[in-house]
């Protein structure tokens, strides 16, 4: 048997010497014109929405601080911080909606037929990236929070995979970062992380993101060549 040259790559074998992004052919990651249009509108309108909500929150915060009642004044003071939190949350959403999605969709659409698992992986990646960008992630949002939200009768059911991603990502991402956070970051950062992770890691949000991602991917697949 002849010797196989070192570094030979077999058919179907992942090339571990390259980054994932390098392994994906450029043509496969390109957005279709339809996806491009939707991504642009999501991004532009998302920024407008974000600004309007943050402005309204700050305005309400000022007025609340003018009232009597400690709870109202406290809630008013929080609005400035919540404005920031909502901005982070919104950025996470719009980044996934308009940007990160674009980078993953082309490759996902052409390389993975099923979709859901890639969506899950993509979402976890996006979550990780955005969570890290928003000062890591103290994942204090307890399981009880999800049960309260998703178990409510007014809400439609979430799939098992949404739960899996939600709970799994909390443990996988959360534990080491929680330890770091407790060790190095101030309380404000902990609150920020908690809010962001509650917002993006509850199963309803996971399902919403999955639907947006799947829909955008199918937008490309749905157009005949």
């Amino acid at each position: 048997m002849s010797e196989i040259p070192k570094g030979t790559q077999f058919v179907g074998q992942a090339d571990a010497r390259k980054l994932h992004t390098e392994r994906v052919k450029p043509a496969e990651t390109k957005l279709s014109p339809e996806q491009q249009k939707v991504a642009e509108v999501m991004q532009e309108s998302g920024e407008v929405l974000e600004k309007k909500v943050v402005d309204a929150r700050e305005e309400a915060g000022k007025k609340l601080q003018g009232l009597h009642g400690k709870e109202l004044v406290d809630a008013g003071k929080k609005q400035m911080v919540r404005g920031l939190l909502d901005t982070v949350k919104a950025q996470v959403k719009w980044a996934i909606g308009g940007g990160i999605i674009g980078a993953t969709l082309g490759a996902a659409g052409s390389r993975v037929s099923g979709g859901d698992m890639h969506d899950a992986a993509g979402l976890l990646g996006a979550t990780w990236a955005s969570g890290s960008a928003a000062i890591g992630g103290e994942v204090s949002a307890p399981l009880a929070y999800n049960k309260k939200v998703a178990g409510s009768q007014e809400l439609t059911k979430v799939g098992w995979s949404d739960w899996l991603i939600s709970v799994g990502s909390r443990f996988a991402i959360g534990t080491p970062i929680t330890l770091l956070t407790m060790r190095y970051l101030p309380l404000a950062a902990v609150q920020l992380e908690s809010h962001v992770f509650q917002a993006i890691l509850n199963p309803i949000t996971v399902r919403g993101l999955r639907n947006v991602m799947t829909g955008l991917r199918e937008l490309k697949k749905g157009v005949s060549k």
Binding site: E34, V38, K93, G97, I204, T205, R207, G208, L209, R210, N211, V212, M213, T214, G215, L216, R217, E218, L219, K221, G222, V223
Partner: peptide, 17 residues
């Protein structure tokens, strides 16, 4: 038909978000 399904998915996802 396929595009309508894709559009509906995006819209339902946004409703939830």
């Amino acid at each position: 038909k396929k595009l309508q399904r894709a559009a509906s998915l995006v819209q339902s996802g946004l409703d939830e978000l």
